[in-house]
């Protein structure tokens, strides 16, 4: 289990106070463990992203939720596109070709 202590050990440029603010704002959403918050790999990557935005690029606090929301929407969209891509890839050759041709025609 990756704890809050581990996170500030892994991402050295983030301190406890800052991490707690991010969790309170729900920019980072660790799982709730029996005793304390439990982070996974995605949470750590999220902390790194926030560290980059807030500390390295000095993006203002008001802009961060806007950026996160847009990033999250893009990832949801990409996830759905991946599903569609998989479904189309599983179709027989002629249907796949037909979809591709028609899509190209409209681009």
């Amino acid at each position: 289990m990756i704890t809050e202590n581990d996170v500030i050990e892994i991402v050295k440029t983030v301190d406890r106070g800052q991490l707690r603010v991010w969790v309170r704002e729900r920019w980072v959403c660790p799982a709730q463990g029996t005793e304390e918050a439990a982070y996974n790999e995605a949470d750590i990557a999220r902390v790194r992203l926030l560290d980059m935005l807030a500390n390295e690029l000095q993006v203002g606090t008001e802009a961060i939720p806007i950026i996160l929301s847009l990033i999250d929407q893009i990832h949801d969209m990409r996830a759905q596109m991946r599903v569609l891509d998989e479904v189309i890839s599983d179709q027989p050759e002629d249907i796949r070709m037909q979809v591709l041709r028609q899509a190209l025609d409209r681009c």
Partner: peptide
């Protein structure tokens, strides 16, 4: 080599960050 958030976003393990946005 850096670990970016994009490797996780929209995948299992990052459901907590689903936008809840409407398509």
């Amino acid at each position: 080599e850096h670990q970016y958030y994009k490797q996780y976003g929209g995948r299992p393990g990052a459901q907590q960050y689903s936008s809840g946005g409407n398509f």
